[in-house]
Amino acid sequence: MKMTTIGAASGAQKLNKGKTMIKIKHYKLLYLILSMTVIWTFVFNYLPMVGIIMSFQDFDIFKGITGSPFVGFKHYADIIQIPALRKSIANTLLYSSVKLFIGFPLTVIFALLLNELRSMAFKRVVQTISYLPHFLSWIAIVSLFYTFFELYGPFNNLRAMLFGADVERINILMMPEHFLELIFYSNVYKEIGWGTIIFLAAIAGIDPQLYEASMVDGCGRFRQIVHITLPGILPTIMIIFILSAGGVLNANFEQIIGFQNLYTQEHTEVINTIVYKYGLQQGNFSLATAFGLAQGIASFLIVYGVNKIAKKLSGIGVW
């Protein structure tokens, strides 16, 4: 009896292996494309993790990882003593939270509005215009904002037209109190269109018969959005939100450093700019690595916590 069971199990394993090999041969081009992605991810995301060792060393670029002395958690203690640390953490949480809790819903709303457009030609034009800023670098976006808000730029010229030529010309890019607005609106301008792609794809996957049935029952467009579209894309919204929550401690470095200037940088430091200025600019690579590792661990814990809460409230989670 045991020999029969073992033989059956062995036969099933051989059959499964045979099916797997047939699938691999059939989809070999897809596996080839996937292999490039796996190799790229391994080389640029996993191999560099060996450098984490530097956070526990007084790293010397000439001695390398193997020759630099081990100092334990010294650099992690140094992080806590950085004067601008508390302010940078507060700014990072503020800027990232505003993007997440206000910018993210705006992306969903914009996707819903695009889906409601009945003219396909007009819809394509709107999508193209909204997607274009995503392909510009942050330096280009910052340059556009500097040009727009300069003393004799379009913003001040418009104010002069509305309030008279004697109105005081201002440059809000040099005012720290307006920095959050600049970060938020520039992020919306650059990314809101591109962010709608995944939500429009999720909406396209909803069964059209649900809309037809709701029309028979007398539902208008708004009620269809509330009772069909939003529940249909809720899993996508939750997963994107959970993954985005991990970036709360990671403000966009290029965006922040681009908008910073002599008038605002003292009040607008974030974790990434602190790492750059205290770590990389001063050649303290061990401190920068310690910052990065601590930031990564904290981000993982945030994603883990948000995922737990989301699963309890909605039953939807990443894992």
Rank of each mutant, 00 (worst) to 15 (best):
V318Y: 02
A121P: 05
T20G: 15
I242R: 07
A201L: 10
V142I: 07
N45T: 09
G305Q: 02
S96K: 04
V306L: 14
Q57R: 05
G315C: 08
N284R: 04
I228R: 00
F145G: 01
G18I: 07
N171M: 11
K123R: 09
F145C: 11
V126Q: 00
K19A: 09
V126R: 01
I239N: 08
L117E: 06
T20F: 15
E266M: 10
K190M: 13
A111N: 02
Q81I: 09
A121D: 10
H267C: 03
G195P: 00
T229M: 07
M49G: 02
Q57N: 05
I197Y: 09
P231N: 03
T107H: 05
F44L: 12
G220V: 02
L180W: 10
Y211R: 00
T128Q: 07
A213T: 00
T107N: 06
V306F: 13
V306N: 05
Y95G: 01
K17Q: 12
L200P: 00
F135R: 09
K74D: 09
I206R: 00
I240Q: 15
K74H: 11
N45F: 10
F62T: 15
V167Y: 08
I22C: 03
Q81G: 13
L114V: 08
L113Q: 01
F62C: 07
N157H: 12
G164V: 06
K19F: 10
F300M: 10
V108F: 15
P48K: 06
A251R: 05
I52E: 00
V306M: 11
P105G: 06
L144A: 13
I24W: 04
K312P: 01
F155Y: 10
I52Q: 04
I240T: 07
G72R: 11
I53F: 08
V167G: 04
V167F: 05
Q209C: 10
Y263N: 14
S35N: 02
I225P: 01
L287A: 06
N115L: 04
G18C: 03
R223S: 15
I271N: 03
N187P: 00
A84F: 06
S119D: 13
I39V: 09
F44N: 08
L158E: 08
I22K: 13
K19H: 11
F145N: 06
F62Q: 11
P176K: 08
F59A: 08
Q81T: 11
A84T: 15
I24N: 04
A121Q: 12
A84E: 15
L293P: 00
G292F: 08
F104L: 06
Q209R: 05
I206P: 00
I65C: 04
F56R: 01
W138T: 02
F149K: 00
